[in-house]
Design a protein around this nucleic acid. Structure first.
Length: 283
DNA sequence: ATAGGCACCTGGTGGC
DNA sequence: TGCCACCAGGTGCCTA
């Protein structure tokens, strides 16, 4: 599910309900997700105030008053849903605990945040706040695509000499942190680059052009509240709607949206993942 | 060091 | 209805 725009959307939804608010209790309903939870996680969360909520790549980080930081990854199917009425803006009763509700945060403002993840590819960990960036899962991440460290010269330098398809390179979180399968497909369509193109074969001007294209695709998706395919929800339960703006993802056999192009979108498999593209427009 | 494949897990869909 | 194969938004780890 969640690539950078979806995680950013969830973060923005959670912030008013969680930031500055104490966790009165945490229910931890199983011992692990992708990996075992950190020891005594429920006790280490209980009573702590969330000082700051932030995002790094596809991770949500919650800095706690205990000087520990809770690190959350949504994996493929993770959701964080708010219930209750933290802002007095809407009223919604707390739902009964459902299947796959693995962790529930009971906040002092009477809201609840429920982490639900059927496939359990998600993860949570606790780390001392000053060392959060050095956490094993974070320390090798490349620059944020919407941040200042991601720019034309960086991308040209890091892609130069690599002998891999540009699709794989843009999915590599060490090169750029936050893109996933959907948004790489959409980026390559807008940039008119074939997903099979080797990075070393792409001209410098086309590499440079990828930078604003990546930024635009991500910012458009964030404005739309992310993409809801099967089960993605914003933290308030609403759907994102960027999926209606897909040019290629999931559109195998449908017409290319480039004006005047008569081709159909094709699907190929690269490193066991689907790539959607227009073989006429993208080279 | 780098590139490619597999594994982890559940649920939805479509074909027979 | 049932069974089965296949597909899914991620990514760490193992192999060559």
């Amino acid at each position: 599910m969640p690539e950078l725009p979806e995680v950013e959307t969830v973060l923005q939804g959670l912030t008013p309900a969680m930031e500055g608010v104490k966790i009165s209790r945490a229910d931890v309903n199983r011992p692990d997700l992708r990996w075992p939870f950190p020891s005594a996680m429920a006790e280490r969360l209980t009573g702590q105030t969330v000082l700051k909520l932030r995002r790094r790549a596809k991770y949500i980080l919650a800095d706690l008053s205990s000087e520990e930081t809770l690190l959350v990854h949504l994996g493929m199917s993770g959701r964080m849903l708010i219930s209750g009425d933290p802002l007095g803006q809407f009223s919604r009763a707390h739902p009964a605990v459902a299947k796959h509700d693995h962790v529930i945060f009971h906040m002092a403002n009477d809201s609840r945040i429920t982490f639900n993840d059927p496939r359990r590819f998600g993860a949570m960990d606790l780390v001392k706040t000053p060392f959060a960036d050095q956490h094993k899962l974070l320390r090798s991440l490349g620059p944020e695509p919407l941040g200042n460290d991601f720019h034309e010269n960086y991308l040209a330098q890091v892609l130069n000499g690599r002998n891999t398809a540009v699709k794989s390179a843009l999915l590599d979180q060490r090169i750029i942190a936050g893109l996933g399968n959907i948004y790489v497909c959409e980026v390559l369509f807008r940039a008119k680059i074939s997903p099979t193109q080797k990075t070393s074969q792409i001209t410098e001007s086309r590499i440079f052009n990828l930078v604003p294209v990546i930024r635009n695709v991500l910012t458009d998706a964030i404005k739309a509240g992310g993409s809801s395919l099967r089960d993605f929800r914003q933290a308030n339960g609403e759907l994102g709607y960027f999926q209606h703006s897909f040019d290629v993802y999931g559109r195998e056999g449908e017409p290319c949206r480039t004006p005047g192009c008569k081709a159909q979108i094709v699907r190929i498999v690269q490193s066991s993942r689907s790539s959607f593209y227009c073989a006429t427009c993208q080279s």
